[in-house]
């Protein structure tokens, strides 16, 4: 068998068999793996959906081993029906994710294909209208931080407001630093740590601070070591204890908030 055969040279396959998988370019053992995974799926349509999913992924230009990795990471992909899948891919293209970026997004975050078009549209609307990102910025966010589509709305809103109001960061910088990639916990922990050390200040109404704040990129786009040595100037021990203390502070804050709202 020639496993290097590209999707273009494949004969149309109508049923999912070991043979057809090998024909698509999977190795024998890969084929067996996929075959087994699909036969474990319940419902008669499963095999048909699996087939269309595989085809769609190949059409995006992904190679067999990437496709296998994605399916392992996100087995739900096997069960999406073909027209929905096409709509979702089409919608993302419309949002500006053209070939290269779409391929990248899907291989980084295959779950995006399980998200209904409606959901994606409402996230986009939220980013455009509530957060005032431009069309291009929204495309960039979807490309760099596709997980936003599945984040809880409250959480996403809080994260935006945190950067905008609490850290005084404008939209362009959020996009540039791929801000939405980081979890709210990470964001708050690093920011509050700097703030309590006196190394970060919320700008006033005129956008002014008494000190020069470090760039968002330098705070978040570094590993913990880099963050501690170059930005916070602190020991790992301090940061570790701080993380524990802050987690407890939030927990208690939420608790208080909850009980106030319940009253």
């Amino acid at each position: 068998h020639n496993h290097e055969v590209g999707p273009q040279s494949r004969k149309p396959v109508t049923e999912l068999s070991l043979h057809s998988l090998v024909d698509m370019g999977f190795t024998d053992s890969q084929s067996e793996q996929i075959y087994e995974a699909t036969s474990n799926l319940r419902g008669g349509s499963a095999a048909r959906h699996a087939l269309s999913t595989l085809t769609a992924l190949f059409v995006l230009g992904l190679n067999p081993s990437t496709v296998l990795r994605l399916l392992e990471k996100c087995p739900e992909l096997y069960t999406i029906n073909e027209s929905q899948l096409q709509q979702r891919i089409g919608n993302m293209r419309k949002l500006g994710l053209v070939e290269g970026s779409l391929q990248r997004v899907v291989s980084y975050y295959p779950q995006i294909l399980t998200v209904p078009v409606k959901t994606v549209k409402s996230v986009v609307l939220f980013l455009r209208e509530k957060c005032q990102f431009t069309v291009q910025q929204v495309t960039d966010i979807l490309r760099d931080s596709p997980t936003v589509v599945l984040e809880k709305r409250g959480q996403l809103e809080y994260k935006f407001q945190y950067a905008y109001f609490r850290m005084g960061v404008k939209q362009a910088w959020m996009v540039k630093s791929r801000y939405f990639r980081f979890s709210l916990d990470e964001v708050r922990c690093r920011h509050c740590f700097l703030e309590r050390r006196g190394l970060y200040q919320t700008p006033d109404k005129k956008g002014q601070t008494l000190i020069i704040n470090p760039k968002l990129d330098d705070i978040f786009n570094v590993d913990e070591d880099g963050f501690l040595t170059h930005v916070a100037n602190a020991s790992a021990e301090e940061f570790e204890v701080f993380g524990k203390l802050l987690a407890r502070e939030w927990q208690e804050e939420q608790h208080q908030h909850g009980s106030v709202e319940a009253d």
Partner: peptide, 22 residues
């Protein structure tokens, strides 16, 4: 921030974070 930072120098950020935490 004005007085202790002069007194404690490079130690102040660490002391400051501790003072502002539980």
């Amino acid at each position: 921030d004005a007085t202790h930072s002069v007194q404690l120098g490079p130690l102040w950020p660490s002391v400051r974070a501790a003072l502002l935490s539980e």
